[in-house]
């Protein structure tokens, strides 16, 4: 009986109709999310800082109607992941067992590209989940020159040595005239006797000892402005989900280019 149940569940998850249903439900849910997100940034933003489970227990619980779409998104994405894995697993099994000898090379590569995209999709979803459940985040850390700080939960010390401002160099945007649009913050990391120099800037994180530093804000935003004090504000993150996510993206893109390339060749061959 339990084996039958397992087989039936497996068969249920191997259905492409289930894929279509789940995808359409996800589209409807995300469209609803788009509506719910209007003016509700403050509700979802803390998820980035407190992690998924804590966010679900606090923010989502306190505003269930506005976060309902997201609560629904989680099981739908999980089901899609299982469905994708089962479908691809089954197809690959059959491909390996019987069909690979009969398929022409282009067709085989096309099929393999599609399967690569599917497997990448599963890895991508796993990466997202890992990111939001297992990350350690220390948000909004302020650093000023001359006052080093220790990264929470470690012996790593970071000091801001110098801030090299990058001013807006064009003249098209009047509000940006005289304004700094980026900064090269020269940091010194110390861990025992080891010392490492690194430069932190907007969209240029620093990775060290498993921690990643992401610049949020900096000051002064303009020379001679009202607030002359020098500081940078950054988030420190330790996110084990990032690597699988990016590997998955690379694999998906490889599969996608393979699909486009071999689809084109297969169609040409059929036309001939």
């Amino acid at each position: 009986m339990p084996i039958q149940l397992v087989v039936r569940t497996y068969q249920f998850f191997c259905s492409i109709k289930l894929t279509v249903t789940l995808l359409l439900l996800l589209v409807a849910d995300l469209s609803l999310g788009y509506i719910c997100l209007q003016g509700k940034v403050s509700l979802f933003q803390p998820m980035n800082e407190v992690g998924l489970s804590q966010w679900l227990l606090t923010y989502a619980r306190s505003q269930p109607l506005d976060s309902a779409w997201f609560l629904l998104l989680l099981p739908l994405l999980s089901l899609l992941g299982i469905n994708t894995l089962c479908c691809t697993g089954e197809k690959l099994y059959h491909l390996v067992r019987s069909q690979h000898t009969r398929l022409p090379a282009n067709r085989l590569w096309l099929t393999l590209s599609i399967h690569l995209m599917h497997l990448a999709m599963v890895l991508l979803l796993a990466g997202y989940l890992t990111s939001y459940t297992l990350s350690t985040i220390y948000p909004s850390i302020t650093l000023t020159p001359g006052l080093p700080l220790t990264v929470p939960g470690s012996s790593l010390q970071v000091e801001l040595l110098e801030m090299q401002m990058i001013p807006y160099s064009r003249n098209r945007l009047i509000p940006f005239l005289g304004r700094n649009i980026d900064v090269n913050a020269h940091l010194l990391f110390k861990d025992g006797k080891e010392q490492v120099h690194a430069t932190l800037a907007m969209n240029r994180p620093v990775h060290i000892h498993g921690f990643s530093f992401f610049l949020q804000r900096f000051n002064p935003t303009r020379a001679g402005g009202m607030s002359p004090s020098q500081y940078i504000i950054f988030d420190i993150r330790r996110d084990p989900g990032v690597l699988p996510t990016f590997i998955a993206m690379g694999a998906f893109l490889t599969g996608l280019f393979g699909y486009l390339f071999f689809r084109h060749r297969t169609r040409k061959r059929l036309e001939l």
Partner: peptide
């Protein structure tokens, strides 16, 4: 409202 004071206050 000024985050620049945080490091000094922390010390």
């Amino acid at each position: 409202w000024d985050p620049s004071v945080i490091p000094m206050l922390s010390t």
